[in-house]
Amino acid sequence: MSEVRKPRDPLTGHVKALAKGFKYLVEPNRMTLDYPAETMKLPPNYRGFFTVDDKKCIGCSMCEMVCPPEAITMVPRIIGEGGKTIPAPEGEKEVKGPKRTKRPVVNWGKCIFCYFCVDVCPVDAFIPTQVHDLAFEKDSEYRPSYEDYLKPPEEPYKNSKKVISKADLKRGVSYEPAP
């Protein structure tokens, strides 16, 4: 490997370094995404915020069991009309009796988006989205109620330009308007 190590003589070195710097100064080469004026449309398997399909879920608690940071809590629910659930009476902890079931709620303050829960669900009840840049103002918003959790997460910066990233020979990553 001695040919790799061979130092360059200082004069050539300085000239080459300055020339390279100047080359980058004058040629268009920007790699940055101008977030939030532009936002990215992420690939479909991107792991973002997710909700659960109330009708599909069978209340098996597998997701709660697999969650590494224990972000999921199961809330007691009653199966109502058309398969939708309604809240169980206040104070009811045990899930006993007819039409009683449980549904998962994710604490976004703890979730690490590993998607173990999504993958372990035997009926594939979770609905993944690609929204990844939500911010919460209050501590309580991290821990939504089940009803709030069911609402699909809203993307911030709705008016921004949607782009997709592309590998680019010149800039590494370039951004094109999303189709």
Binding site: Y24, L25, N29, R30, M31, D34, R171
Partner: peptide, 13 residues
């Protein structure tokens, strides 16, 4: 800005 240009980014914007 010059540093940003060489470094493939926007700089103050």
């Amino acid at each position: 800005k010059i540093a940003a240009k060489v470094q493939m980014r926007f700089g103050p914007l």
